[in-house]
Simulated assay, not measured.
Amino acid sequence: MTGRDGGSADHDSEVAEWWATAITRMEPGVLEFRGEPVADVIAHRGLTEVIWLLLRSGRPTPAQARLLEAAMVASVDHGPQAPSIAAARMAATCGVGLNSAVATGINMLGDVHGGAGEQCLLMLTEVVERESTGQESADAARSTVQAWRERTRYLPGFGHRFHPVDPRREPLITLVAEARDRGEVSGEFLRAGLAIEAELANTAGKNVPMNVDGLTAIIYGELGFAAPLARGLFVLSRAIGILAHAWEEQQSGRRNKGPIPPSILPLYRPDGGSTPGS
């Protein structure tokens, strides 16, 4: 028995099985996402709901969709000093296409820039797990912070090099707290985040508020997303800002080929240092 291309039917079946997926069904005249016809998805789902559908299947509750959307909106951009944005803006004037400029920015998102949400969610999960064994929230936070301090001096999701208090903190904290009070999320990841904040304030002698990575990690934890998806969702949302900046830079008509204007390029120094040019 032969397949459509003259090969064996068993071979065709093996190829089909290799690429089998529960996400998409595509046949001539048919396109479905998780079993839902694309026409229905277009008519009845917003983009946030489609993200949930493809990653998780099913439909989020209105409260879940609102929290997911808020987390993604909060992460779209943080200005041209962010490495991913700066790289995209420079690439946009180097003769590459817009897609390459966006890809350049996205490829800058790694463990140091873009990965803190995933790392913070792992840390928050440790607090939640310690609480599940009977530890008080403060003790669970203290034990977790101590454990993380043993392997890194950087606690992901807390403190900000620009903002004394991240301007995204209060609106996101408020949304999660309201959802908790309505019984729409458990509140355990919010409790963990606030407990770490309190522990850091005690040990550092000053407030070290959560930044957007910690705030969105709380939301993704409350929504039940795996930690690696906290990074993936950050990349997805930041791609919007990267696209906007790359497009703006392309329209400027200038060549942006370095992180500082040519008039203040550093001068070469034989000892390996540099001084600003005049």
Rank of each mutant, 00 (worst) to 15 (best):
C94N: 10
R153I: 08
D166G: 03
A226N: 10
W148F: 03
V50N: 07
E249H: 06
D12V: 09
V112I: 08
E199H: 13
G3R: 03
L223R: 01
L233N: 12
Q146D: 00
A217H: 01
G258F: 06
A140P: 05
T21G: 06
A116T: 10
L122R: 14
M26V: 09
S278C: 03
A177N: 12
L172C: 02
S8Q: 01
P209W: 12
L267N: 09
S132D: 14
R269G: 00
A204N: 08
A217C: 02
L223M: 01
S252Q: 10
L122F: 04
N256E: 06
A147H: 06
E69D: 15
P28F: 03
A192I: 11
V185N: 07
L223T: 03
F158N: 05
L124R: 08
R59H: 13
L67K: 04
N99G: 04
G221T: 05
G46L: 00
A20S: 14
D77F: 10
D10W: 11
S263P: 03
L53F: 00
E126Q: 15
R269L: 13
G6M: 00
R255V: 14
A22C: 01
R149W: 03
V112F: 09
L190Q: 05
L265N: 15
C120T: 13
R149P: 12
V185G: 06
R168V: 09
L243T: 15
I51F: 13
